[in-house]
């Protein structure tokens, strides 16, 4: 059983969001980078939990990114990946990224490909489904539970107003969210071991770009809060009705 976990690098959740170069680039100065939370907490950790139950499982990681992503790949290896592949490209079009992941996945013939639910910077929630279509595999989005049997996966996914449990044969692609796994932090042994785990760098294959980001915009600042005395919540109710017109 071989699992491929798609790892992306994102700014820390508390990072200041600002732009440079005429609002065409994210301002990276002083920004801490992390593994995209969904990729780490759910996709990767669930793969590690499965491997703890069955040592024959191999966990490979893939990142499409420049050399600056290597510290977070090492961190993912420290948590418990076996080896990693970095496709050396800073291209941001989702179709291009998905194409690169699909190339890597084809070469490695994986049984299971895991992605996060979405990246907290691009908010695309599209790479996993794109990869599945490129590989002609089933795709389960927004999974909250994953168990595996010899030939199939048993997956619970979120649906509007509830959840649904399904059985799907391998190979398949799953995007992971909350519920999948218990959080964990890398230990010293893992960190030491990660230094010598294989990290292969590949050049991207040619693939089309279907979109391009022109510029970024910050939302207008709030004009300030109107405070209502705690003794008179009825005044708030009145304002919500007459001024904001929301109730």
């Amino acid at each position: 059983m071989k699992i491929l976990v798609c790892i992306s690098r994102t700014p820390d959740t508390t990072a200041k969001i600002a732009f440079t170069d005429n609002n065409t680039k994210f301002a990276t100065e002083g920004v801490q980078w992390i593994i995209n939370p969904y990729d780490e907490w759910y996709a990767l950790v669930r793969a590690i939990e499965l491997k703890e139950k069955d040592a024959s499982i191999g966990i490979h990681l893939v990142t499409i990114g420049g050399a600056e992503t290597e510290p977070i790949i090492r961190k993912a290896l420290a948590l418990g990946g076996d080896e990693a592949i970095r496709v050396n490209s800073i291209e941001e079009d989702p179709y291009f990224i998905a194409s690169q992941i699909a190339f890597v996945a084809k070469e490695g013939s994986y049984d299971l490909i895991l992605t996060g639910k979405e990246t907290i910077d691009h908010n695309g929630s599209s790479i996993g489904a794109m990869v599945s279509e490129l590989l002609d595999m089933p795709f389960i989005s927004l999974a909250t539970k994953l168990n595996i049997e010899p030939t199939q996966a048993i997956v619970t996914r979120e649906i509007e107003g509830g959840e649904e449990e399904a059985e799907i044969s391998f190979p398949l692609v799953i995007s992971c969210q909350k519920g999948m796994a218990e959080a964990r932090i890398p230990n010293m042994r893992g960190i030491m071991a990660a230094r010598t785990k294989p990290l292969a760098v590949k050049e991207p294959q040619s693939a089309e770009k279907l979109t391009t980001t022109k510029a970024f915009v910050l939302p207008p600042a709030k004009s300030g809060v109107k405070l209502i005395p705690a003794e008179t919540p009825e005044l708030l109710v009145q304002l919500l009705r007459e001024e904001a017109k929301v109730i």
Binding site: I120, D121, N123, T213, K214, F216
Partner: peptide
């Protein structure tokens, strides 16, 4: 983008 903290023109 950035979880609602900004917008991108794509």
């Amino acid at each position: 983008v950035f979880s609602g903290k900004a917008f991108a023109d794509v």
